[in-house]
């Protein structure tokens, strides 16, 4: 499956088919992060049921230092 994540095109195994599995895949499950799928914010409680399909665009963002 091909996804666009944070501006980068990535090839992922087909079993990485939900937001939850994607976060596990990148070992981000315990990080403070927010996920946007096709420009729509995914709530934490929906990580498991939000399925990913070929061509989806994701943004995974977090807080960094800033003024």
């Amino acid at each position: 499956m091909t996804l666009q994540i944070n501006g980068k095109q990535v090839e992922l195994p087909d079993n990485v088919n939900s937001v939850k599995k994607l976060l596990l895949h990148y070992k981000l499950e315990s990080r403070i992060a927010v996920v946007e799928l096709n420009k729509e914010i995914v709530k934490k409680e929906e990580y498991e049921k939000r399925k990913l399909v070929n061509g989806d665009t994701l943004e995974i963002v977090h807080f960094i230092g800033g003024g």
Binding site: N6, K8, V34
Partner: peptide, 20 residues
Amino acid sequence: LTFAVRRMNIFEEGQPNFLE
């Protein structure tokens, strides 16, 4: 405390984050 919102560098593991 103020923070900025940015893309996470998910392709490199274990980067420390101040807020965390």
